[in-house]
Nucleic acid binder design. Structure first.
Length: 708
RNA sequence: AGCGCGGUGGGGUAGCUAGGUUGUGCCCACAGGGCUCAUAACCCUGGGAUCGGUGGUUCGAAUCCACCCCGCGCUACCA
């Protein structure tokens, strides 16, 4: 719940620099921060909204390496690229900068030295793995080896996926570096710096406890950390790319990226102040308790914003305020999958803008914003939302109003006459909508705000429908029609003002069609109920504001990017499948030698597919099965165990061809006895009678690797 | 494994903190009707739910308690 304060400071989680972000990143911090900023500005509040890229850390280094560029240059380029995308999305920051700046380096070092002086920094010897080939320290994630607990040979350094024991990279037996794949590592002892969270626990707990109004997502994660007790957290890294540590004995190291990233909020504000020509101006926002500070983040970021960053600030004791509200979002999934930059799952911000206008995305992802729980981006729902809500409800209402005025009143807002009950009702609905939208917005309930506004838009259509101005015109009751249209014009204007934070481009367009001189973005929130002057001339040429999305378009996109929801549509209407259509038109293919079985049996869901546990295994032994010409008994190592399976491939393969090869095994197939021999699984092979081709992984992977 | 969040008609979502009329609301999809100013749009009506499961507390539970099942996330040098 927003409190009334003198000014508002809004931060969105700094997007990590190495890749273009996806819609999930947009919805959990960047976009809602913008919407709130726009709303507050409309209310005439003093607002500072800051953001920028998070530039440091190993992944940036690795990405730069892959791109064959110096880190510094790569990061700068990516930062500018992201900035450009966000501008095109209409994100209205006061400043969008980065963490690799002089300001951030100085401030980070300054706060660190204060923490050190105040006794909150500890030094500890840490044993870590070092890869002599890559000449870099290996984070736990970058190590594989044998699990000391269950002897699984391909355990990752952070956790063994076989016995699920939480590990430490140095515990692994025979550790291997993932980056170069070699086993040329050594254990190094290094002194590292730790932020002593334990000493600050009381302060953090008190601060968390006074904020009972935070979203569940925020407070439950914060409290669970506090409950377990805060332990010292390492803040130094032995890499080159980052902010140097200004302390003797550690000058060869840099700060761990989580330490300097949130400080970026402040240093970016300092940059903004300099741009304003008042270098001290940032203190007004960051050092005055009359400022209301809101962080927008995804749930993965809660520990940093609710525990470690406030601990940094509290420990440094430099007069910088802590957040008043931490709005944490859950995940936006893509068609029931996790959005993933590394695996290219989902829609990325640059692609999105190539496909549809920014407002389409802004509207839809805020409509499904994961405020309470994870939600799904579905192409079908995307289309439904744009077509129903934006085009039909909102767009069409404005459109029918303006066309009517143009056709019947020479394009001039007609004069309002005697009001009837329905007229008064719709006008009070407008006021009510503004009031309710306002109160939801102040609770930072983004979806509910949108619901309130669109409920009102629906009422507007009902009103138009029940007043039947077209019938009035026919029966020469022009005065009555004039009143109706006067009110509809006012409601159109009101809707534009209410929706301006969400769909700024479209709201502006409505204003243009209404031919209102001042930009929508200069309209005060309080002008929602304002009338348009009688006789004011609206634009002559009225075109639909929102173009609808055709089903075919969305099917194509869904097939291109992968989509469960589109598959369901095609299942119901197979004739919509463009692939099948093409087949119809394509000249008949030269007959294949063999009749290929029809590919499409019955569509199954991804979930059903996931029931199969397919693993990679190495064939250890192959023996013929007694009294069977076609069967062989195979022992295959699937990582966790050796399995005996029976396969009907004896006629086509000799044991020598098979032993040592990696194959793919269905490991959760129910056991069966074939010719008296027990078979616990099944190997995958292509059957092209009489030929049989056993499927093998193209590259060698650890036994037990999942196949999907 | 521990912790956190969630599981509501075909899809989505609200209601749960402070239990109360037969499972209420909203959006979409579906069926029927109306209207014709408008982007085949808008308006009205209707069908459809064991409120994840089991047990408990209570006069009464989607709502409280216990246990279980399922999905997702976090578990601290992966930002």
């Amino acid at each position: 719940m927003l409190e009334d304060k003198k000014r508002y400071l809004i931060t969105s989680a700094l997007p990590y620099v190495n890749t273009v972000k996806h819609l999930g990143n947009l919805v959990s911090s960047l976009l809602p921060a913008d919407i709130l900023a726009r709303y507050l500005r409309q209310r005439g509040e003093e607002v500072l909204a800051v953001c920028g890229t998070d530039d440091h850390g190993t992944p940036a280094e690795v990405s730069a390496l892959e791109a064959g560029m110096p880190v510094e240059k790569f990061v700068e380029q990516m930062s500018l690229k992201q900035k450009d995308i966000y501008e095109r999305f209409g994100l209205s920051y006061d400043i969008f900068s980065r963490t690799h700046t002089q300001e951030n380096a100085e401030l980070t070092q300054h706060l660190f030295l204060k923490l050190h002086k105040n006794g909150h920094i500890k030094e500890k010897e840490v044993r870590s793995l070092y890869c002599k080939n890559c000449k870099r320290n290996l984070p736990d994630r970058y190590v594989v080896g044998t699990c000391p607990n269950c002897k699984y040979e391909h355990a990752r350094g952070d956790q063994c996926e076989n016995c699920s024991k939480v590990l430490d990279g140095i515990d692994l037996i025979n550790p291997k570096c993932i980056i170069c794949g070699e086993s040329n590592t050594e254990i190094k002892n290094e002194n590292h710096l730790f932020l002593d969270l334990g000493g600050l626990e009381g302060k953090i707990k008190a601060w968390v406890d006074t904020h009972k109004d935070w979203p569940k997502t925020t407070s439950s994660i914060a409290n669970s950390w506090l409950k377990e007790g805060l332990r010292p957290r390492s803040i130094s890294r032995n890499i080159k790319w980052g902010i140097p540590i200004p302390l003797d004995g550690h000058r060869d190291k840099v700060f761990y990226v989580w330490f300097d990233a949130p400080i970026g909020y402040i240093s970016i504000s300092q940059q903004w102040a300099k741009q304003q020509g008042k270098p001290k101006l940032w203190e007004k926002f960051w050092k005055d308790p009359e400022t209301y500070l809101i962080n927008f983040i995804g749930k993965d970021n809660v520990p940093f914003h609710a525990i470690t960053f406030p601990a940094t600030l509290a420990g440094a004791d430099d007069g910088i305020i802590l957040a008043d509200y931490i709005k944490a979002f859950q995940w936006l999934n893509y068609e029931r999958l996790k959005f993933s930059s590394s695996q290219g799952v989902g829609i990325f911000t640059d692609t999105a803008l190539e496909l549809y206008p920014a407002d389409y995305w802004r509207y839809y992802i805020m409509k499904i914003a994961p405020e309470r729980h994870d939600t799904d981006f579905l192409w079908t729902e995307f289309r439904d939302s744009i077509n129903n809500d934006l085009a039909d409800i909102l767009g069409n209402f404005v459109h029918r109003t303006l066309i009517f005025i143009n056709n019947n009143f020479e394009g001039k807002i007609p004069t309002r006459n005697k009001l009837e009950k329905e007229d008064k009702d719709i006008l009070s609905s407008l006021e009510e909508a503004a009031k309710n939208a306002d109160s939801e917005m102040r609770k930072l309930e983004f979806q509910r705000t949108l619901l309130v506004i669109f409920d009102f838009a629906r009422e507007c259509n009902k009103y138009f429908q029940s007043k039947k101005p077209w019938a009035d015109m026919k029966s020469n009751n022009t005065e009555r029609a004039a009143t109706t249209l006067n009110i509809c014009a006012q409601c159109s204007r009101g809707l534009a003002v209410l929706l301006a934070p969400y769909i700024p481009f479209s709201s502006e367009e409505i204003f243009e069609q209404l031919n209102l001189k001042e930009s929508i973005h200069k309209q005060s929130w309080f002008s929602v109920t304002e009338k348009i002057l009688d006789g004011h001339k609206v634009k002559q040429e009225i075109l639909p504001i929102f173009k609808k999305i055709e089903l075919e378009e969305i099917i194509e996109l869904g097939l291109k990017w992968g989509s469960e929801s589109i598959k369901e549509v095609l299942e119901k209407n197979p004739n919509l499948d463009p692939l099948k259509k093409k087949k119809k038109h394509a000249p008949k293919k030269i007959k294949q030698k063999k009749k290929v079985e029809k590919v499409t049996k019955e569509l199954i869901s991804f979930k059903e597919f996931q029931k199969l546990d397919l693993r990679v295994g190495t064939i250890k032994t192959v023996e013929p099965v007694k009294d069977a010409d076609k069967l062989v008994k195979i022992i295959v190592d699937i990582g966790t165990e050796e399995r005996q399976i029976v396969a009907g491939i004896a006629e086509r393969y000799k044991p020598d061809e098979l032993i040592g090869k990696q194959i793919i095994v269905v490991v959760n197939l129910e056991p069966a006895k074939i010719r008296g021999v027990e078979s616990n699984g099944m190997l995958l092979a292509a059957s092209a009678d009489p030929e049989i081709s056993v499927l093998v992984p193209l590259r060698e992977v650890p036994d037990g690797s999942k196949v999907r």
